[in-house]
C-alpha cells in the first residue's frame, strides 16, 4: 500500500459523506461500463451447434470406439512383445556373461594352482 492510498484513506475518514458519494458513483460507473456485456446474448444457433457436437461425438464413440480400441491394443501388443524380446535378449546375454565371467575366474584361479587345469578344461 503506497503513501497515496494511505492519504486517500485518511481523506475518506475525514470526509465520509464525500467518499460515500464517490463510492456510489464508482459503482454506477462500473455497472454502466458492463452494460454491454449485461445485455449481450449468445449468437443464434448456439444450442443447435452444441447438440450436433454432442450427437456427433456420441456417434463417433459408439461406431469407432471398438475398432480404435482393437487397433490400439494390437499396436500395444506388438510393442510389448518387442520390448519383452529385447529384455529377454539382454537377460540372456547377462546370464551368458556371468557364466563366462565365472568360468574365466575359475580358470585363472585353478590355473595358478594347477597349471594344466586350463588345458584340461578347454580340451
Amino acid at each position: 500500500m503506497g503513501i497515496s492510498s494511505l492519504l486517500l484513506r485518511m481523506g475518506r475518514a475525514l470526509c465520509p459523506q464525500r467518499c460515500l458519494a464517490e463510492d456510489a458513483l464508482l459503482d454506477n460507473l462500473i455497472y454502466e461500463a458492463l452494460l454491454d456485456e449485461a445485455l449481450s446474448v449468445p449468437p443464434a444457433g448456439a444450442w443447435e451447434r452444441l447438440r450436433s457436437t454432442i450427437s456427433e461425438g456420441a456417434a463417433r464413440r459408439q461406431g469407432m470406439w471398438v475398432v480404435q480400441e482393437v487397433r490400439s491394443n494390437a499396436a500395444q501388443r506388438v510393442a510389448q512383445e518387442r520390448q519383452a524380446a529385447r529384455v529377454e535378449r539382454q537377460l540372456s546375454m547377462l546370464r551368458q556373461g556371468r557364466s563366462d565371467h565365472w568360468r574365466q575366474a575359475c580358470e585363472v584361479l585353478w590355473g595358478n594352482v594347477f597349471p594344466t587345469y586350463v588345458a584340461l578344461v578347454n580340451w
Binding site: 456485456e37 449481450s40 446474448v41 449468445p42 449468437p43 448456439a46 444450442w47 451447434r49 452444441l50 457436437t53
Partner: peptide, 28 residues
C-alpha cells in the same frame, strides 16, 4: 438448462475474456 443459463455464462465469459468468439466457445 442451456436456455436457462446461456446468457449468464456467455456474458460472464465475454466480460472476462473480451472476445465474443471466445465467449461462445467457452459457452459451448
Amino acid at each position: 438448462l442451456f436456455e436457462r443459463y446461456r446468457q449468464r455464462v456467455y456474458r460472464t465469459a465475454l466480460a472476462i475474456v473480451r472476445d465474443p468468439a471466445a465467449a461462445e466457445d467457452i459457452l459451448q
